Computed example of a mutant assay.
Amino acid sequence: MPLTVETCVARHLGDREEQQDRVSLFPHPSRPGMMMAVLADGMGGHSGGAMAAEQVVIKARQNFEAFKPSSEEPRHLLSSIVNEAHLVIRLTRFTSEKDPHSTAVILMLQPGRVDWVHCGDSRLYHFRGDATVSRTLDHSLVGELQRKGRLDEASALNHPQRNVLLSCLGSDREPKLGFGHVESLIAGDSFLLCSDGLWAYFSDDELAATVNMFPAREAAAKLIAAARERAEGAGDNISVSIIKLVDAPNGREALPAGVSTSR
Rank of each mutant, 00 (worst) to 15 (best):
R123G: 05
G149C: 02
D196N: 09
D204F: 01
P2M: 13
R75D: 09
L109R: 09
I242V: 14
S122D: 00
E206T: 08
R128A: 11
V56D: 00
D247N: 14
A131G: 06
Q62E: 14
G120V: 07
K98I: 06
L39K: 01
A52L: 02
G258I: 09
E72S: 12
R61Y: 04
G170F: 01
H101I: 00
A131W: 02
V246E: 13
G258Y: 08
A257F: 12
L198K: 14
E97F: 05
S203A: 05
A231W: 02
L109N: 15
A220T: 06
A10E: 11
G149P: 02
L109S: 04
D236E: 05
L151G: 13
N83P: 00
G129A: 13
N63T: 02
P2Q: 13
F94T: 10
A225Y: 02
N83L: 15
G49L: 04
E73Y: 07
G178L: 03
V246D: 15
E206L: 04
E72G: 01
S239W: 10
V117K: 01
P100R: 12
A10L: 07
R173H: 11
N237S: 08
T103W: 04
D138H: 11
T7I: 14
S262H: 06
R230H: 08
N83Q: 10
L107Y: 01
E18K: 03
P100L: 05
H28Q: 10
P32T: 09
M108D: 00
G49N: 08
A231C: 03
E253H: 07
A219K: 14
A85F: 07
D138V: 06
E6W: 11
L39V: 13
M1N: 14
R61P: 00
E218C: 03
F64Y: 05
G143V: 15
S195E: 04
I81P: 02
L198Q: 07
R113Y: 15
A234K: 15
L198A: 03
D99R: 08
E253S: 14
L165P: 03
E174I: 01
G149K: 00
G44T: 06
G197C: 03
H181I: 01
P160H: 11
N163S: 14
I186T: 15
L223D: 12
L78K: 06
H139F: 05
R22D: 01
D204Y: 01
G233D: 04
D205C: 01
L255V: 05
L166G: 00
K176Y: 11
S79W: 08
R22M: 11
F26G: 01
T4V: 10
G235P: 04
R90C: 09
V259D: 04
H76R: 06
H46K: 05
Y125N: 11
H12I: 11
S79H: 15
P74W: 13
H76M: 04
V88K: 08
A154M: 10
V105Q: 01
L255P: 06
R147F: 12
V117S: 02
L255C: 02
G44V: 03
G112F: 13
R31C: 13
G42S: 06
P27H: 02
A85G: 05
Q62W: 00
S71E: 13
A53D: 04
F67T: 08
P111A: 12
V117P: 03
S239M: 05
T7H: 05
N158L: 11
E65R: 08
R22Q: 15
E18Q: 10
T92L: 07
R150L: 14
L25H: 08
D152V: 03
L39I: 13
